[in-house]
């Protein structure tokens, strides 16, 4: 029990020094809460302006737009931009590392692939391309199933592979 003192006619455990310390801690706590909200609005704790980024050069035939920061079991999306140079015979092949699929619950792939082949380290998606002169965008919708760094590698024949990491908050 805190120490009880006589103040005036009252027996009470009032401690002004502790009260002032408590108020200082409260104010620091409010500051931390404000910082958390600001960080979330900026996208440092999930989707937002500072989270959205692109892996790969702007002029490269293969690029991926993704979120630097994701959240556990929260809907997320990766968009792979494929240049016309990678289209062969009206088809494009896109390989994604298997470790990515091991750590996410994959939802819709848009557009739907015509074929998916599973290898020991890669899943190879084949997409039909209607207009070989226009770039293709493929969207992978997923929910991270584990917290921590999510390492993603995307490759296509004729382009250097791109590797990037998304951090998944618990």
């Amino acid at each position: 029990m805190p120490e009880i003192k006589r103040i005036g006619d009252l027996d009470i455990s009032q401690d002004l020094d502790h009260q002032h310390r408590m108020w200082r801690v409260e104010h620091v706590g409010w500051g931390v809460m404000v910082l958390l909200v600001v960080a979330a609005l900026l996208g440092l704790l999930g989707p937002g302006p500072l989270s959205n980024t692109t892996a790969g050069e702007e002029s490269a035939p293969l690029r991926a737009t993704y979120g630097r920061f994701d959240r556990y079991k929260s809907p997320s999306q990766m968009t792979v931009h494929i240049g016309p140079a990678l289209v062969h015979d009206g088809k494009v092949e896109l390989s994604i590392n298997r470790a990515f699929f091991d750590r996410v619950d994959l939802g819709q792939v848009d557009p739907e692939p015509v074929q998916v082949a599973a290898g020991p380290n890669w899943f190879i998606y084949t997409f039909a391309v209607a207009d070989a002169s226009a770039p293709l965008e493929v969207r992978f919708h997923y929910e991270p199933g584990d917290a921590g760094p999510l390492r993603i590698a995307v490759a296509a024949p004729g382009a250097p592979p791109i590797r990037f990491t998304s951090f998944v908050y618990p």
């Binding site: 029990m1 805190p2 120490e3 103040i7 009252l10 009470i12 009032q14 401690d15 502790h18 009260q19």
Partner: peptide, 16 residues
Amino acid sequence: KSVERWVEGLPLIVLE
């Protein structure tokens, strides 16, 4: 004692 002080707080006289 310190745990109780921080978790529960202490009473404070606001009018005398």
